[in-house]
């Protein structure tokens, strides 16, 4: 475990020095995410000009949801995005060889090697927006619920990455340029709205088979729901199931991998 933490420390050092080499991209990416955050906030601000509630959620509750969604997105952009986007290229070009010969878990190496330092700045902004949304919430939120919320946001971020990987790993067989990533980007739009708006069947699908609701919306609901423990336990179980599934399919993919260069 210590070895993996130390290795991750080196990844961080390398990523920060790399980010500062491409300074303009550093600022562009920060700007892009800021625009994305503003657009999301404005979207719901406009919606709430015409209604006091959206599927039973008040504006302040939805703002916490938006904050959670933004933090999950920022966490992903910071920790996982650069890595997951590269997987298809690694497999198709045979560059995965470099990772396979390392004396550490290939999945760990491939998933966490590149830390997006520029998005880290956005993560700070995203957390600030979430704190602002919390402060604007009219009723007191208990410490326990806040901690569960924090845990579920982190869990949602991991789940987001795992589901994305499920769409990317087929590249071992299809050898397409990006795997099924475009389909993931399309379906992930379900995550951008509170799950309360969906019908019961769709909501069930979004909490189990395609758990986009568990990434931001359900974590936000843990602050207001009558039974936060059931939600927390359910969310964690789904993540464990998805983690097992991804690792299993990843190992199948590795068995199917033939280095392009050899």
């Amino acid at each position: 475990m210590i070895r993996y933490l130390r290795l991750y420390g080196y990844f961080l050092q390398f990523s920060f020095s790399k980010a500062f080499e491409f300074r303009i991209d550093f600022y562009f990416r920060i700007l892009m995410d800021v625009v994305y955050y503003i657009m999301n906030l404005l979207f719901f601000k406009v919606i709430f000009l015409h209604s006091k509630y959206l599927a039973g959620w008040s504006e302040s509750q939805v703002m916490i949801f938006v904050g959670a969604f933004i933090v999950v997105d920022a966490l992903n952009m910071t920790v996982f995005a650069n890595n997951s986007w590269n997987v298809a290229q690694l497999v198709n070009r045979g560059d995965l060889d470099y990772y396979l010969v390392r004396p550490v878990s290939t999945f760990f190496f491939v998933s966490l090697r590149d830390f997006a330092a520029n998005s880290f700045v956005n993560l700070i902004m995203a957390v600030s927006i979430l704190v602002w949304a919390f402060m604007k919430y009219p009723e007191p939120i208990g410490l326990l619920r806040t901690l569960l919320f924090g845990l579920l946001v982190l869990n949602g971020s991991l789940l987001y990455f795992l589901v994305l990987m499920l769409f990317i790993i087929p590249v071992f067989w299809t050898h397409s340029a990006r795997g099924l990533q475009p389909l993931f980007w399309t379906t992930s739009k379900f995550m951008e709205r509170p799950h309360a708006i969906y019908s019961r069947v769709v909501r069930w699908v979004l909490m189990t088979i395609m758990p986009f609701a568990l990434m931001a919306s359900v974590p936000a609901s843990v602050l207001f729901a009558p039974n936060p423990w059931a939600i927390t336990l359910g969310s964690l179980l789904v993540t464990v199931a998805f983690m097992s599934l991804v690792l299993f399919i990843w190992s199948l993919g590795l068995r199917n991998y033939s280095s392009a260069s050899s």
Partner: peptide, 20 residues
């Protein structure tokens, strides 16, 4: 992509129209 876009929008507007 079209189906998801329309589905998400359908539920959003349905919820909003139901709310007010």
């Amino acid at each position: 992509s079209v189906a998801v876009e329309l589905m998400v929008s359908y539920f959003l507007w349905e919820a909003l129209f139901a709310s007010t």
